[in-house]
């Protein structure tokens, strides 16, 4: 099962490597990991996507909680939640037809063109990971020059919040 674990962690040097080190030392896999400070600069919010059986996920959350720098965590996939990922994708766009086609695609996927040159378009798309995958699928592979994905971030729906 795929799980999205949200972590509030002390914003200190080395905190990220403690999490990453834990995963490699114990043989857990990380699909993606994003981290940035919160509105309280002393705290970072990390979103970690991993896969494993219920037993493994239980161990992962316990081991994460055991890290001294971890203040609190939540498995978002246990309740209703929203996940988003951002992608910046640079595409070859030369000539009227090709430029129109890329623009149309971007519109269909609610993407925004954020940089334009004579030969390229750079598009920003957000959504859950499957939407970003679908966008890539829908494009002509030979047009893709570069893709940058942020990794998943997530938040619970409604009143439920991960805060101290």
């Amino acid at each position: 099962m795929r799980h999205i674990i949200s972590i509030l962690i002390e914003n200190e040097a080395g905190a990220l490597s403690r999490v990453a080190g834990l995963f490699s030392a114990r043989g857990y896999n990380i699909e993606s990991l994003t981290v940035a400070p919160t509105e309280d600069a002393s705290l970072s919010r990390m979103t970690l996507v991993t896969r494993g059986s219920d037993d493994i996920i239980e161990q992962i959350t316990k081991q994460l909680n055991k890290l001294i720098d971890v203040v609190k965590l939540m498995d978002l996939t246990e309740g209703p939640h929203i996940e988003r990922e951002m992608m910046l994708i640079k595409l070859r766009a030369v000539g009227g037809d090709q430029r129109d086609e890329v623009k149309r695609m971007a519109d269909i996927f609610r993407g925004r063109i954020i940089d334009v040159t004579d030969t390229t378009y750079t598009i920003e798309v957000t959504g859950d990971s499957t939407k970003l995958d679908a966008f890539i699928q829908a494009l002509d592979k030979s047009l893709i020059l570069e893709t940058v994905r942020s990794g998943v971030m997530g938040i619970s729906r409604g009143e439920k919040a991960l805060r101290i």
């Binding site: 037993d55 239980e58 161990q59 316990k62 081991q63 909680n65 055991k66």
Partner: peptide, 11 residues
């Protein structure tokens, strides 16, 4: 005392 010791090897 350590939650991560519980159900790690044996349920």
């Amino acid at each position: 005392i350590d939650p991560s010791s519980i159900s790690k090897n044996v349920k």
